[in-house]
Simulated scan of single mutants.
Amino acid sequence: MQHALYRSAKADPGRRFHALGDKIQRRDVLRRAWAMVRANNGAPGVDRTTLAGVEEYGIDRLLGELADELRQGKYRPLPARRVLIPKPGVRDERRPLSIPTVRDRIVQAARSVRIGVLRGRVGSLEHLLWYANINGLSLARATATARAWPGHGGGSW
């Protein structure tokens, strides 16, 4: 799916992708997101669910429940667990680190799979998202504004 959307975006730079939100609830996207989360091997969040715990519970069962929650609009992320970790290169100082739950990391990864499609069209998607966030704009409005920036000449957005 991601490759097909990428090819479509490259073939028609003016094409709009309005309904990408429904793509994150697909089994193949959630399965790929699980693989990304599993490969990262992170710590448990506030619910204390580990990756091994998810495997014991059943990956397909969890992904099915997540897909249903996303489809029905009932998915709500849990608060992130905050821990203090040492600052690199600074003795006796710590910085906060937020650790989301495994379920929330799967949804975040699924969204990044979906957004990854747009990377072929946007030079710096992170910059565009940052610009939208600090100015309280939707991604569509930020994109329209970015097209008018001097030196971008319409850009590839």
Rank of each mutant, 00 (worst) to 15 (best):
Q108Y: 03
T145A: 15
V54A: 09
R32C: 07
E65T: 02
R81F: 01
D28S: 15
Q25N: 11
L70W: 02
G89Y: 07
P77N: 05
I24Y: 01
R111N: 09
P44K: 06
G73E: 13
R61D: 11
L70S: 08
S124P: 03
G120Q: 03
R103Q: 12
Q25M: 13
G154D: 09
H152A: 10
I134Q: 15
A19G: 14
R94F: 13
V102L: 01
P100L: 01
Q108S: 12
H152N: 12
D60K: 07
D68P: 00
E93L: 14
D68M: 09
S124K: 06
L62C: 06
T101R: 00
G73N: 12
Q72S: 14
I99V: 14
K74M: 07
D60M: 11
W149N: 09
V37W: 05
R71F: 13
R121A: 15
L51Q: 05
Y75C: 03
L97S: 06
N41A: 06
V54F: 08
T50L: 04
A142T: 02
L118S: 12
A67G: 05
R82G: 04
V54Q: 03
P88S: 11
G154C: 04
P77H: 00
V37S: 05
G136Y: 10
H3Q: 15
R48Q: 14
R94H: 10
R31M: 15
A110W: 03
R141E: 15
L51D: 02
V107N: 01
R147I: 01
G21H: 08
R48K: 13
A109I: 07
G14Y: 04
R32L: 12
P44V: 03
G89A: 05
Y75G: 02
